[in-house]
Simulated scan of single mutants.
Amino acid sequence: MGETLAAGHSDKAADRLMFRSGWVPKSLKGILAGAALLAGLAPSMAPAATLSFEQLRAMETPPSSFGLKTCQQLWYLEQKVLAAGRICLGSERGRRAFSASLPCISDDEKILEEEVRLYLDEVRMARREKRCPAG
């Protein structure tokens, strides 16, 4: 901020200098804010109805690939999404598998964002289509 540019320096040089002095070029502000949100570093900047980083990671498997998954993989995915949403898992097997997750806060899936509930519906539909045994 106390630094000045000599005449003839390019805009890129100005951006580098300003970045080192603490000012972030406008073109980078959105990128940096988005990265901070994904990393969970700035929750106060997140919109009210935003998925957590854990939920985003749990849901990174695209529904189009569910047909290629085994029953075990689909069960694990369902439990992973529930645990990331801080839903209390109903089976001892699920609790053991996700014992390192954040503590659960509810048995009711209604606390999950609609996007998460729809994703879980897709996982469960794939399990039914494969005739997987109940969890």
Rank of each mutant, 00 (worst) to 15 (best):
E92M: 13
A33C: 07
A48E: 09
R16W: 07
S44D: 15
L68H: 12
D15A: 14
A35S: 13
P43D: 02
W23K: 11
Q72D: 07
A35W: 15
G90Y: 13
K80H: 15
G67S: 13
V81Q: 06
K80R: 11
G90I: 10
P43K: 06
G94V: 07
L89R: 03
E92G: 15
G30Q: 08
M18H: 08
L41C: 10
R86T: 12
L68F: 15
S44V: 10
G22V: 00
L74E: 01
P62A: 13
R86C: 08
L51H: 07
K29D: 13
F19L: 10
L77Q: 03
C71E: 00
R86S: 03
L28Q: 06
A48V: 10
V81C: 08
P25Q: 03
A58Y: 00
A83L: 02
G67R: 01
F19E: 05
G94M: 03
L77F: 00
A13M: 07
G22Y: 01
A33D: 12
V24L: 13
C71F: 02
K26E: 14
Q55R: 04
A36K: 13
G67V: 04
S52G: 02
Y76M: 11
L74S: 00
L68R: 14
S27H: 12
L56R: 10
P63F: 02
Q79I: 04
Q79Y: 14
A46D: 09
S65K: 10
Q79H: 05
L77K: 02
S64M: 04
F53C: 09
G34P: 04
R93Q: 08
K29M: 15
T70G: 02
M45C: 11
L51E: 11
Y76E: 08
P25K: 12
A48Q: 08
S21I: 03
F66Y: 01
A97W: 14
Q55V: 04
S65T: 15
R57V: 12
S21M: 09
A39L: 09
A14G: 03
A58E: 01
P25H: 02
T61P: 07
G90N: 05
L89E: 01
F53P: 11
E92A: 14
L32P: 02
K69T: 04
S64T: 05
D11I: 10
F66S: 03
E54V: 12
R20C: 06
I87C: 03
D11K: 09
G22A: 02
L77P: 00
L17M: 11
A14C: 06
C88A: 11
A83G: 00
D11N: 11
A14H: 10
F53Y: 14
G40I: 02
S27V: 07
C88H: 04
G94A: 10
Q73A: 13
